[in-house]
Protein backbone atom coordinates (compact mmCIF):
# COMPACT_ATOMS: atom_id res chain seq x y z
CA UNK A 1 0.00 0.00 0.00
CA UNK A 2 2.78 2.36 0.81
CA UNK A 3 4.51 1.38 -2.37
CA UNK A 4 5.40 4.29 -4.59
CA UNK A 5 6.77 3.83 -8.07
CA UNK A 6 9.05 6.18 -9.99
CA UNK A 7 7.72 7.65 -13.23
CA UNK A 8 8.99 10.28 -15.64
CA UNK A 9 6.86 13.38 -16.11
CA UNK A 10 5.91 13.96 -19.74
CA UNK A 11 3.46 16.83 -19.56
CA UNK A 12 1.78 18.89 -16.82
CA UNK A 13 -1.69 20.44 -17.10
CA UNK A 14 -2.99 22.11 -13.97
CA UNK A 15 -3.04 19.48 -11.24
CA UNK A 16 -2.87 16.56 -13.65
CA UNK A 17 0.20 15.23 -15.42
CA UNK A 18 0.99 12.54 -17.94
CA UNK A 19 3.76 10.31 -16.65
CA UNK A 20 5.68 7.39 -18.06
CA UNK A 21 6.18 4.28 -15.93
CA UNK A 22 8.90 2.76 -18.11
CA UNK A 23 6.64 2.45 -21.13
CA UNK A 24 3.14 2.64 -19.64
CA UNK A 25 1.78 6.18 -19.83
CA UNK A 26 -0.75 7.17 -17.17
CA UNK A 27 -2.31 10.31 -15.80
CA UNK A 28 -1.57 11.23 -12.20
CA UNK A 29 -2.45 14.03 -9.80
CA UNK A 30 0.41 16.44 -9.11
CA UNK A 31 -1.28 18.66 -6.52
CA UNK A 32 1.32 17.66 -3.91
CA UNK A 33 4.49 18.40 -5.91
CA UNK A 34 6.07 20.92 -8.27
CA UNK A 35 6.88 18.62 -11.12
CA UNK A 36 8.36 19.62 -14.44
CA UNK A 37 8.57 17.55 -17.61
CA UNK A 38 11.69 15.39 -17.62
CA UNK A 39 11.76 14.97 -13.84
CA UNK A 40 11.10 11.71 -12.05
CA UNK A 41 8.34 11.57 -9.45
CA UNK A 42 7.30 8.88 -6.98
CA UNK A 43 3.70 7.89 -7.64
CA UNK A 44 1.47 6.42 -4.95
CA UNK A 45 -2.20 5.54 -5.56
CA UNK A 46 -2.59 7.98 -8.42
CA UNK A 47 -0.73 10.91 -6.83
CA UNK A 48 2.83 12.09 -7.27
CA UNK A 49 4.10 12.38 -3.69
CA UNK A 50 7.67 13.53 -4.23
CA UNK A 51 10.11 14.61 -6.92
CA UNK A 52 13.14 12.34 -7.07
CA UNK A 53 16.51 13.99 -6.88
CA UNK A 54 18.62 12.33 -9.54
CA UNK A 55 21.79 14.09 -8.48
CA UNK A 56 21.36 12.87 -4.90
CA UNK A 57 20.85 9.33 -6.19
CA UNK A 58 24.04 9.46 -8.19
CA UNK A 59 26.03 11.05 -5.39
CA UNK A 60 24.86 8.37 -2.99
CA UNK A 61 25.92 5.61 -5.35
CA UNK A 62 29.29 7.27 -5.83
CA UNK A 63 29.76 7.60 -2.08
CA UNK A 64 28.95 3.91 -1.65
CA UNK A 65 31.32 2.82 -4.37
CA UNK A 66 33.97 4.69 -2.46
CA UNK A 67 33.12 3.19 0.93
CA UNK A 68 32.94 -0.25 -0.60
CA UNK A 69 36.10 0.20 -2.59
CA UNK A 70 34.26 -1.04 -5.64
Amino acid sequence: MCLAIPARVLEVRGHRAKVDFGGAVREVDVTLVDARPGQYVLVHAGFAIQVLDKREAEEMLRAWEEVLGA
Binding site: T31, L32, V33, L42, I49, Q50, L52, D53, K54, E56, A57, E59, M60
Partner: peptide
Protein backbone atom coordinates in the same frame (compact mmCIF):
# COMPACT_ATOMS: atom_id res chain seq x y z
CA UNK B 1 19.14 9.12 5.85
CA UNK B 2 20.07 6.57 3.23
CA UNK B 3 17.16 7.49 0.93
CA UNK B 4 18.29 11.02 0.11
CA UNK B 5 16.98 10.75 -3.44
CA UNK B 6 13.43 10.97 -2.09
CA UNK B 7 13.54 12.05 1.56
CA UNK B 8 14.36 15.60 2.67
CA UNK B 9 14.70 16.81 6.24
CA UNK B 10 11.25 18.39 6.32
CA UNK B 11 9.59 16.04 3.85
CA UNK B 12 6.88 17.26 1.52
CA UNK B 13 5.73 20.57 3.02
CA UNK B 14 2.74 20.87 0.75
CA UNK B 15 1.47 17.40 1.63
CA UNK B 16 1.91 18.13 5.34
CA UNK B 17 -0.05 21.36 4.93
CA UNK B 18 -2.93 19.48 3.32
Amino acid sequence: NEYTRAVRWRGNERAKEF
